[in-house]
Protein backbone atom coordinates (compact mmCIF):
# COMPACT_ATOMS: atom_id res chain seq x y z
CA UNK A 1 0.00 0.00 0.00
CA UNK A 2 2.83 2.37 0.79
CA UNK A 3 6.20 2.53 -0.83
CA UNK A 4 7.20 5.63 1.03
CA UNK A 5 8.88 5.73 4.36
CA UNK A 6 7.18 7.76 7.00
CA UNK A 7 8.79 11.17 6.82
CA UNK A 8 8.78 12.35 10.36
CA UNK A 9 11.40 14.29 12.23
CA UNK A 10 9.84 13.26 15.49
CA UNK A 11 9.81 9.56 14.77
CA UNK A 12 13.11 8.79 13.07
CA UNK A 13 14.23 5.52 11.56
CA UNK A 14 10.83 4.01 11.03
CA UNK A 15 10.85 2.43 7.65
CA UNK A 16 7.38 1.12 7.65
CA UNK A 17 7.33 -0.77 4.40
CA UNK A 18 10.67 -2.42 5.05
CA UNK A 19 9.40 -3.76 8.33
CA UNK A 20 6.28 -5.06 6.71
CA UNK A 21 8.18 -6.97 4.07
CA UNK A 22 10.60 -8.36 6.59
CA UNK A 23 7.89 -9.63 8.84
CA UNK A 24 6.33 -11.88 6.26
CA UNK A 25 8.70 -14.79 6.61
CA UNK A 26 10.90 -14.07 9.58
CA UNK A 27 10.16 -14.18 13.28
CA UNK A 28 7.77 -11.25 13.90
CA UNK A 29 9.36 -8.07 15.13
CA UNK A 30 7.81 -6.17 17.95
CA UNK A 31 5.96 -2.98 17.23
CA UNK A 32 5.47 -2.08 20.87
CA UNK A 33 7.40 -3.06 23.93
CA UNK A 34 5.94 -2.10 27.27
CA UNK A 35 8.13 -2.24 30.33
CA UNK A 36 6.61 -1.75 33.79
CA UNK A 37 3.98 0.61 32.47
CA UNK A 38 1.77 2.37 35.02
CA UNK A 39 -1.04 4.65 33.94
CA UNK A 40 -2.42 7.18 36.40
CA UNK A 41 -5.50 9.36 36.34
CA UNK A 42 -4.56 12.02 38.85
CA UNK A 43 -3.79 10.12 42.06
CA UNK A 44 -5.53 6.98 40.89
CA UNK A 45 -3.47 4.15 39.52
CA UNK A 46 -5.56 2.80 36.65
CA UNK A 47 -3.17 0.23 35.20
CA UNK A 48 -0.25 -1.26 37.09
CA UNK A 49 3.04 -2.80 36.03
CA UNK A 50 2.27 -3.97 32.53
CA UNK A 51 5.15 -5.48 30.58
CA UNK A 52 4.45 -7.00 27.20
CA UNK A 53 5.62 -7.03 23.61
CA UNK A 54 3.16 -6.52 20.77
CA UNK A 55 4.39 -8.10 17.55
CA UNK A 56 4.29 -6.62 14.11
CA UNK A 57 1.58 -7.48 11.56
CA UNK A 58 -0.41 -9.48 14.02
CA UNK A 59 -3.64 -8.93 15.86
CA UNK A 60 -3.24 -8.60 19.60
CA UNK A 61 -6.38 -8.64 21.70
CA UNK A 62 -6.86 -7.16 25.19
CA UNK A 63 -9.64 -8.91 27.09
CA UNK A 64 -10.89 -8.70 30.65
CA UNK A 65 -13.76 -7.49 32.82
CA UNK A 66 -15.00 -3.89 32.85
CA UNK A 67 -12.70 -1.45 34.56
CA UNK A 68 -9.60 -3.60 34.12
CA UNK A 69 -7.81 -0.80 32.30
CA UNK A 70 -7.59 -2.40 28.88
CA UNK A 71 -8.96 0.66 27.09
CA UNK A 72 -6.77 2.93 29.20
CA UNK A 73 -3.70 0.93 28.21
CA UNK A 74 -4.76 0.99 24.56
CA UNK A 75 -5.11 4.76 24.65
CA UNK A 76 -1.63 5.10 26.08
CA UNK A 77 -0.27 3.41 22.93
CA UNK A 78 -1.06 6.46 20.78
CA UNK A 79 -0.94 9.05 23.54
CA UNK A 80 -4.67 9.73 23.47
CA UNK A 81 -4.47 9.78 27.27
CA UNK A 82 -2.42 12.95 27.04
CA UNK A 83 -5.64 14.79 26.31
CA UNK A 84 -7.21 13.87 29.63
CA UNK A 85 -6.14 16.32 32.34
CA UNK A 86 -4.21 14.55 35.06
CA UNK A 87 -3.49 11.39 33.06
CA UNK A 88 0.12 10.29 33.00
CA UNK A 89 2.13 7.25 31.98
CA UNK A 90 5.13 5.89 33.85
CA UNK A 91 7.51 3.22 32.62
CA UNK A 92 8.67 2.65 29.07
CA UNK A 93 6.43 2.45 26.05
CA UNK A 94 8.78 1.62 23.21
CA UNK A 95 7.58 1.92 19.66
CA UNK A 96 10.02 0.20 17.32
CA UNK A 97 12.56 0.57 20.08
CA UNK A 98 11.98 4.27 20.53
CA UNK A 99 10.60 5.83 23.70
CA UNK A 100 7.17 7.07 22.73
CA UNK A 101 6.96 9.37 25.75
CA UNK A 102 10.39 10.86 25.13
CA UNK A 103 10.78 14.62 25.38
CA UNK A 104 11.24 15.15 21.66
CA UNK A 105 8.25 13.12 20.56
CA UNK A 106 5.28 15.08 19.25
CA UNK A 107 2.05 13.33 20.30
CA UNK A 108 0.28 14.66 17.20
CA UNK A 109 2.87 12.94 15.03
CA UNK A 110 2.44 9.74 17.04
CA UNK A 111 -1.28 9.73 16.26
CA UNK A 112 -0.69 9.99 12.52
CA UNK A 113 1.41 6.81 12.64
CA UNK A 114 -0.77 4.98 15.16
CA UNK A 115 -4.42 5.30 14.18
CA UNK A 116 -7.45 4.55 16.29
CA UNK A 117 -10.99 3.25 15.78
CA UNK A 118 -13.43 3.89 18.60
CA UNK A 119 -16.15 1.95 20.34
CA UNK A 120 -19.03 3.83 18.80
CA UNK A 121 -18.74 4.73 15.12
CA UNK A 122 -17.88 8.43 15.08
CA UNK A 123 -17.96 9.67 11.49
CA UNK A 124 -17.79 13.43 11.07
CA UNK A 125 -21.07 15.09 10.08
CA UNK A 126 -19.81 15.46 6.54
CA UNK A 127 -19.84 13.55 3.29
CA UNK A 128 -18.30 10.08 3.02
CA UNK A 129 -15.60 11.53 0.79
CA UNK A 130 -14.73 14.33 3.21
CA UNK A 131 -14.56 11.90 6.11
CA UNK A 132 -11.88 9.85 4.38
CA UNK A 133 -10.07 12.90 2.98
CA UNK A 134 -9.91 14.63 6.37
CA UNK A 135 -6.71 12.91 7.52
CA UNK A 136 -4.74 13.42 4.29
CA UNK A 137 -5.87 17.05 4.19
CA UNK A 138 -4.61 17.53 7.74
CA UNK A 139 -1.22 16.37 6.52
CA UNK A 140 -1.30 19.16 3.98
CA UNK A 141 -2.38 17.22 0.91
CA UNK A 142 -4.26 19.42 -1.48
CA UNK A 143 -6.04 19.00 -4.76
CA UNK A 144 -7.57 15.80 -5.98
CA UNK A 145 -7.74 13.10 -3.34
CA UNK A 146 -9.98 10.73 -5.32
CA UNK A 147 -7.31 8.04 -5.51
CA UNK A 148 -6.52 8.22 -1.82
CA UNK A 149 -10.20 8.04 -0.91
CA UNK A 150 -10.86 5.12 -3.25
CA UNK A 151 -7.85 3.18 -2.00
CA UNK A 152 -8.81 3.72 1.65
CA UNK A 153 -12.45 2.74 1.02
CA UNK A 154 -11.34 -0.37 -0.88
CA UNK A 155 -9.00 -1.18 1.98
CA UNK A 156 -11.95 -1.04 4.37
CA UNK A 157 -14.12 -3.17 2.03
CA UNK A 158 -16.57 -0.33 1.65
CA UNK A 159 -15.90 0.95 -1.86
CA UNK A 160 -18.47 -1.11 -3.71
CA UNK A 161 -21.22 -0.09 -1.32
CA UNK A 162 -20.58 3.65 -1.40
CA UNK A 163 -18.85 4.46 -4.66
CA UNK A 164 -22.04 5.97 -6.10
CA UNK A 165 -22.79 8.15 -3.11
CA UNK A 166 -19.47 9.53 -1.97
CA UNK A 167 -21.01 12.98 -1.59
CA UNK A 168 -23.77 11.77 0.72
CA UNK A 169 -23.65 12.50 4.41
CA UNK A 170 -21.94 9.75 6.39
CA UNK A 171 -24.81 9.76 8.89
CA UNK A 172 -27.03 8.12 6.28
CA UNK A 173 -25.01 4.90 6.45
CA UNK A 174 -25.71 1.89 8.66
CA UNK A 175 -23.77 1.46 11.89
CA UNK A 176 -21.55 -1.23 10.39
CA UNK A 177 -20.82 0.90 7.34
CA UNK A 178 -20.05 3.86 9.57
CA UNK A 179 -17.54 1.80 11.51
CA UNK A 180 -15.88 0.60 8.30
CA UNK A 181 -15.81 4.24 7.20
CA UNK A 182 -13.95 5.04 10.40
CA UNK A 183 -11.48 2.28 9.55
CA UNK A 184 -11.13 3.70 6.03
CA UNK A 185 -10.57 7.12 7.55
CA UNK A 186 -7.84 5.70 9.77
CA UNK A 187 -6.02 3.89 6.96
CA UNK A 188 -6.22 6.93 4.65
CA UNK A 189 -3.41 8.53 6.64
CA UNK A 190 -1.29 5.41 6.02
CA UNK A 191 -0.58 4.51 9.63
CA UNK A 192 1.63 1.68 10.84
CA UNK A 193 -0.67 0.53 13.64
CA UNK A 194 -4.44 0.58 14.08
CA UNK A 195 -5.78 0.53 17.61
CA UNK A 196 -9.37 -0.63 17.94
CA UNK A 197 -11.33 0.07 21.11
CA UNK A 198 -14.23 -2.42 21.13
CA UNK A 199 -14.98 -1.63 17.49
CA UNK A 200 -17.93 -4.03 17.23
CA UNK A 201 -19.68 -3.46 20.54
CA UNK A 202 -22.32 -1.24 18.92
CA UNK A 203 -22.84 -3.46 15.87
CA UNK A 204 -25.05 -6.38 14.91
CA UNK A 205 -23.55 -9.85 14.28
CA UNK A 206 -23.46 -9.50 10.48
CA UNK A 207 -21.62 -6.19 10.62
CA UNK A 208 -19.35 -7.60 13.29
CA UNK A 209 -18.48 -10.54 11.03
CA UNK A 210 -17.57 -8.20 8.19
CA UNK A 211 -15.29 -6.16 10.41
CA UNK A 212 -13.61 -9.30 11.68
CA UNK A 213 -13.01 -10.46 8.09
CA UNK A 214 -11.64 -7.03 7.34
CA UNK A 215 -9.26 -7.20 10.30
CA UNK A 216 -7.82 -10.47 9.03
CA UNK A 217 -7.17 -8.70 5.74
CA UNK A 218 -5.75 -5.57 7.35
CA UNK A 219 -3.19 -7.35 9.46
CA UNK A 220 -1.19 -8.09 6.33
CA UNK A 221 -0.45 -4.39 6.16
CA UNK A 222 -0.95 -3.10 9.67
CA UNK A 223 -0.32 -4.09 13.23
CA UNK A 224 -3.65 -4.26 15.02
CA UNK A 225 -4.36 -4.02 18.72
CA UNK A 226 -7.98 -4.59 19.67
CA UNK A 227 -9.81 -4.24 22.96
CA UNK A 228 -12.86 -6.45 23.12
CA UNK A 229 -15.48 -7.53 25.61
CA UNK A 230 -16.36 -10.41 23.38
CA UNK A 231 -14.18 -13.42 24.11
CA UNK A 232 -15.32 -15.29 21.03
CA UNK A 233 -14.18 -12.35 18.99
CA UNK A 234 -10.73 -12.44 20.54
CA UNK A 235 -10.57 -16.20 19.93
CA UNK A 236 -11.61 -15.75 16.29
CA UNK A 237 -9.41 -12.88 15.21
CA UNK A 238 -6.45 -12.46 17.52
CA UNK A 239 -3.02 -14.04 17.18
CA UNK A 240 -2.16 -13.13 20.72
CA UNK A 241 -4.37 -12.32 23.66
CA UNK A 242 -3.69 -10.48 26.87
CA UNK A 243 -6.01 -11.05 29.80
CA UNK A 244 -6.36 -8.24 32.31
CA UNK A 245 -8.22 -8.20 35.57
CA UNK A 246 -9.07 -5.62 38.16
CA UNK A 247 -7.77 -5.50 41.69
CA UNK A 248 -10.13 -3.64 43.99
CA UNK A 249 -8.82 -2.12 47.16
CA UNK A 250 -11.75 -2.10 49.57
CA UNK A 251 -10.13 0.37 51.96
CA UNK A 252 -9.44 3.14 49.47
CA UNK A 253 -12.10 2.15 46.97
CA UNK A 254 -9.56 2.27 44.18
CA UNK A 255 -9.59 -0.16 41.29
CA UNK A 256 -6.41 -1.00 39.48
CA UNK A 257 -6.02 -3.04 36.32
CA UNK A 258 -3.27 -5.63 36.05
CA UNK A 259 -2.08 -7.90 33.28
CA UNK A 260 -2.67 -11.49 34.32
CA UNK A 261 -1.50 -13.44 31.33
CA UNK A 262 -0.34 -12.74 27.81
CA UNK A 263 0.25 -15.48 25.29
CA UNK A 264 -0.79 -16.96 21.98
CA UNK A 265 -4.56 -16.87 21.69
CA UNK A 266 -4.78 -20.65 21.32
CA UNK A 267 -2.98 -21.11 24.60
CA UNK A 268 -5.03 -18.52 26.48
CA UNK A 269 -8.25 -20.18 25.41
CA UNK A 270 -7.19 -23.83 25.75
CA UNK A 271 -4.73 -24.22 28.58
CA UNK A 272 -3.96 -20.94 30.30
CA UNK A 273 -1.36 -20.91 33.05
CA UNK A 274 -3.32 -18.74 35.43
CA UNK A 275 -6.48 -19.93 37.12
CA UNK A 276 -8.10 -16.48 36.84
CA UNK A 277 -7.67 -16.57 33.06
CA UNK A 278 -9.24 -19.98 32.89
CA UNK A 279 -12.20 -18.86 34.98
CA UNK A 280 -12.72 -15.86 32.77
CA UNK A 281 -12.44 -17.54 29.37
CA UNK A 282 -14.64 -20.41 30.48
CA UNK A 283 -17.29 -17.90 31.55
CA UNK A 284 -17.17 -18.57 35.26
CA UNK A 285 -16.17 -15.03 36.10
CA UNK A 286 -16.71 -11.60 34.64
Amino acid sequence: MSETTTPSPALPDIEVSADRVASVDTEPKNTFELRDVNVFYGQMLAVKDVSMAIPHNQITAFIGPSGCGKSTLLRSLNRMNDLIPGARVEGDVLYHGMDMYGPKVDPVQVRTVIGMVFQKPNPFPKSIYDNVAFGPRLQGRKGNLDDVVEEALRGAALWDEVKDRLKDNAYGMSGGQQQRLCIARAIAVQPDVILMDEPCSALDPVSTGRIEDLMAELKKTYTIVIVTHNMQQAARVADRTAFFTVLANDETGSRTGVLVEYDLTSKIFSKPDDERTENYVSGRFG
Binding site: V108, R111, G115, N122, F124, F134, G135, L138, Q139, V189
Partner: peptide, 12 residues
Protein backbone atom coordinates in the same frame (compact mmCIF):
# COMPACT_ATOMS: atom_id res chain seq x y z
CA UNK B 1 -16.16 11.46 19.92
CA UNK B 2 -15.97 13.96 17.05
CA UNK B 3 -13.06 15.69 18.70
CA UNK B 4 -11.38 12.40 19.64
CA UNK B 5 -11.88 11.10 16.11
CA UNK B 6 -10.04 14.06 14.60
CA UNK B 7 -7.27 13.92 17.18
CA UNK B 8 -6.76 10.22 16.48
CA UNK B 9 -6.16 11.10 12.85
CA UNK B 10 -3.29 13.35 13.82
CA UNK B 11 -5.10 16.65 14.19
CA UNK B 12 -3.85 19.13 16.74
Amino acid sequence: SIRDGSLALGAT
